[in-house]
Design a protein around this nucleic acid. Structure first.
Lengths: 242, 242
DNA sequence: CTCTACTCGGGTACAGTGTTCGCAGTAACG
DNA sequence: CGTTACTGCGAACACTGTACCCGAGTAGAG
């Protein structure tokens, strides 16, 4: 791979000369995503991908400069699911809410996203499309461009950060290899001890009295609550009141 | 490690019988944090930690059931920096702002946190302390416990998510091994092509016209802006108006 | 058409990873 | 004082990403 100095998005898929490649980057990416979805991100190895495609491991390096490139491609590929973001409707609040929920759904479909996205700027073409559409929803509001990008960044930050919290336990359980009940049983004595020690009265109230953590849709309700407050904050600071 | 079924926080540090261990979990954790800070999280291996401490690699497994345990300990250790969170002052807005800024500073000091925190619930004693203090700041406001924990979760989500975005490029540059300029040079042709293609007019405005991304304190100003809007959103929904 | 210059696929090899096993030495309990 | 349970750790195992090199195959040049 002689053009490793270039970025993967800017590298031609097929060489000018020579025989035609038998796979495509998209094929390889799709196989990798399938593995990460079903077996977890820690099961994703180049050898595993090669086996899935029925090729030799070293062949993959004809398409990708490194595993890092593959991870970049995976992140950008899932950003294009559902055929790209919807067009702005004029209701900025509804549009942003829709984008946030779509983003959340995507992360839930691919929990490995959260760990990959950390430390990896979203510069793929599909991610850029998503950002453009988010900006478009804000365009009619009269913010200047600096505020607009800040709003988009903040929304993005909330969605990603919230999803990380939501999926943390679920992912820990999955990685541990045991069932949810066994995982709980392993952690219960420790948490009991903390609560019983009495130095965390409010946390104890959360564990004992709170209804939300025990509800089936607790995460979704918390997400909506946080999101609406965020939108409230911007609505209260619109330069042009509708 | 026969009690691997237990959680690391709940495992006794020293055995009842036998010779005294020559290191402590805290020592090992500190060494690991130092390596991750200076050489990056991908340089953190059990062998590297052992070398740093001058021990054999296998000895570490007398203190930790797995590398995963070590990562958990690292995350909780940094949560205790600066001697724990400050006591509530009565100004809930200021208190939450302080907590958010402290959290951001910690992440900046340890950029590897973002990738570790994904998929790992924060159940360590120091993390629980931090959550307790955040709840305490909200206690006088009259929210019920469900809303309180939602507010804390949302704040946490915003801070973590924003930091991920802030550090993404910086981490990508570091991991690539080349300097910032070379990294920029490698990405510029691709971004130029995207802008020139004309299908992202708002993104083009951000890249060309926005002042914020070029300012030295851009990330900090964006963080403050997002945080204040979030606080605005809650202030507008207080059950008891002060 | 031949020749040349290139690419493609992939077996092999290398350095590194997390973790287990077994063994020698040591401290405390009965 | 013997027994027991621990400690430190060298060696080994099964994996990882990926560089190297090879024969085979294809496109354009002359």
């Amino acid at each position: 791979m002689d053009d490793a100095h270039t970025v993967v998005w800017n590298r031609p898929e097929r060489a000018a000369k020579g025989p035609a490649p038998s796979r495509t980057r998209a094929e390889i990416t799709a196989a990798a995503i399938a593995i990460a979805d079903t077996e977890g991100i820690e099961a994703l190895s180049m050898r595993r991908v090669a086996k899935e495609l029925g090729t030799g491991t070293a062949s993959l390096y004809r398409y990708l400069a490194s595993k890092d490139d593959l991870l970049d491609l995976m992140l950008d590929a899932v950003a294009a699911e559902d055929g790209g973001p919807p067009a702005p409707t004029g209701d900025w609040r509804g549009d942003l809410r829709t984008l946030a929920y779509r983003s959340r759904a995507t992360i839930h479909r691919h929990p490995w996203m959260t760990s990959l996205a950390a430390g990896r700027p979203s510069l793929g073409p599909n991610s850029l499309d998503a950002t453009e559409h988010a900006l478009a929803a804000l365009d009619p509001l009269g913010f200047d461009i600096d505020v607009m990008i800040t709003v988009v960044n903040t929304l993005h930050a909330f969605v990603r950060g919230y999803a990380i919290g939501e999926l943390a336990q679920q992912e820990a359980v999955r990685r541990s290899g045991v069932g949810n009940q066994e995982w709980m049983d392993a952690h219960a004595p420790y948490l009991d001890k903390v609560v019983r020690a009495g130095r965390h009265p409010l946390l104890a109230r959360v564990i004992r009295d709170a209804e939300l953590p025990h509800a089936a849709d607790s995460a979704e309700r918390g997400f909506r609550l946080g999101l609406e407050r965020l939108l409230d904050g911007w609505e209260a600071n619109l330069p042009i009141r509708p």
